[in-house]
Amino acid sequence: MRGVTPARLWSFGLVAPPLVVALLFFLGPLIYLFYVSLHEASSTELYGARFTLANYAAVFSDPFYFLIIKRTLATASWILALSLLIGYPVAYVIARLPPAKRMLVMLLLLFPLMVSNVVRAYGWVAILGRRGVINTTLGDLGLVDAPLSLLYSTQAIVIGLLTILLPYMVISIANTLASMDTRYQEAAQSLGAGPVRTFVHVTLPLSAPGVTSGLLLVFLLTLSAYVTITLIGGPRTKLLVSLIYDNVVGFQWPQAAALAFVLLALALVVTALILAIMRPGRVQGSGR
């Protein structure tokens, strides 16, 4: 293709609508959000006129924000570790099923992801709540006198988000394992490696791309799961995303915008960290 031919013009016409929407309703508003985060709050306008870095300074000087960020990272680490620990063996079993059975099991994993998270969080409230399944069962059996308080803690958030996001981890790893050439394992075993050595030195490194995308999905979705965190964690157990919400509804929009960019920065740093540790690029032909 040389110069501006009609065919070329026509194909730029193709990409114009999605490009305009992506720039105007995705990238543009994010740049605007950053601009707002650099201004002071105003009681009459969306944001004040004066330029300031105070919204960011507040995040780094206030011990309360620091505590919340620490809690967010700790919660996310637990969710990541547990989802990998549970997700990997499950994916391993699924990947070795015959194709027809595997598709059925994958559908069983995909289906919960299609259900709204508010429904799945409500399900955990119905199970763990004061009148929930566990407490009424224990009460009927006479094992407890008063209902246990199982909700409204960081542990409850970990359980809730872990189970809501686990299918992403399992599906990512199972897809990588299922498409893996089994001759690699056979080669290792014929060279005298036992099953454990084969797993540690062959299967595990080769599954790095699936593990990486599972970890990234679970982490990014944990960061922004406001509704799940609020329903299961209650009004007191706040994570970073709850602070953003509180500041938005409190009309502290520049502060909320600064917190949003702190959350994005956190997401970037952890993403880089996961990529540096897992190095999915070293597995050839598996870039997705």
Binding site: V15, P18, L19, A22, F25, F26, L27, G28, P29, L30, Y32, L33, V36, L46, L216, L217, L220, L223, S224, Y226, V241, I244, Y245, V248, W253, A256, A257, A260, L263, L264, A267
Partner: peptide
Amino acid sequence: LQALFMAPLVFPTIILGFALLLFYK
């Protein structure tokens, strides 16, 4: 372009909602 079109898939949705709220206002 590919990165731009795929980005909303992994972008924290609550931040997109907030950015759009500001823009819409």
